[in-house]
Amino acid sequence: MSIEIKNISKSFGNTRALDNVNISLGDKKIYGLLGRNGAGKTTLLNIITNRIFADSGEVLLDGIPTRENDKALQKIYMMGEKDYYPLTMKIKDIFYWTKNFYPDFDIEYAKKLADIFELNINKNVKSLSTGYNSIFKVIIALSVNTPYVLLDEPVLGLDANHRDVFYKLLIEKYSNSPGTFVISTHLIEEVSNVIEDVIIIKNGTIIKNESREDLLSQGYTISGKASSVDSYVVDKNVIGIETIGGLKSAYILGSINKETIPADLEVTKLDLQKLFVQLTNA
């Protein structure tokens, strides 16, 4: 099972939101869809879920186009940043209707999660704070049991405790009944330990699409005295440098030869957030 995104392009007026995007979302994986504001993440997710139409290209689920296809769309749930649920509807009623549209939605599990997050399901959407608005949608996403769950900014407005609970529940859910989760977020540091594959989108173009391990093993971080770092990186492919006082960290793409590293320099793994910042700043 997979979602194939083929040659998708989309413009809004003169703005090119997506430019010939080609990616494949495989079965039972957690993807991180990373990009700066306005990079095209939400546009891509909206096209996958038939909420908006691409100017060209197509999205296939198991080889079948998802456009206006109920059978394909029923296999995907998207938790959006914006409200699509009626604002005056109570959360418990939203659970009821979600069960009608997604028969595998587990109401009991959703109620259990509501207890964990201390969400009052007798409240209506309008009365929820930004954090709880995200929480009720996260609860549905974790209980809906579709093969593909797309999460657009799932931790928007959540405090540190609730974010921690969410990541634990996501991993628990993934371990108990593996599915494909796509997390679109700005909080890269937090999700970096959860995601397996990384898709980085920049100005509507996919610039990286590979496993987190592969991505981070393509380079390394070297830190130490500024002068030592400067002389070490002379012939290296440096993607970024950070200086704090007399200390310097250089982010280098390429394989490492440990024998050539001076004793006063420290080697660590590439940091996903740092790599992301460097890649998307360039």
Binding site: T49, N50, D70, L73, I76, Y84, W97, F101, Y102
Partner: peptide, 16 residues
Amino acid sequence: KGTFLMMMQNGISRKS
């Protein structure tokens, strides 16, 4: 409008 958004949220096509 309200129904359309709810249907989009729940994977229902425009045709249905």
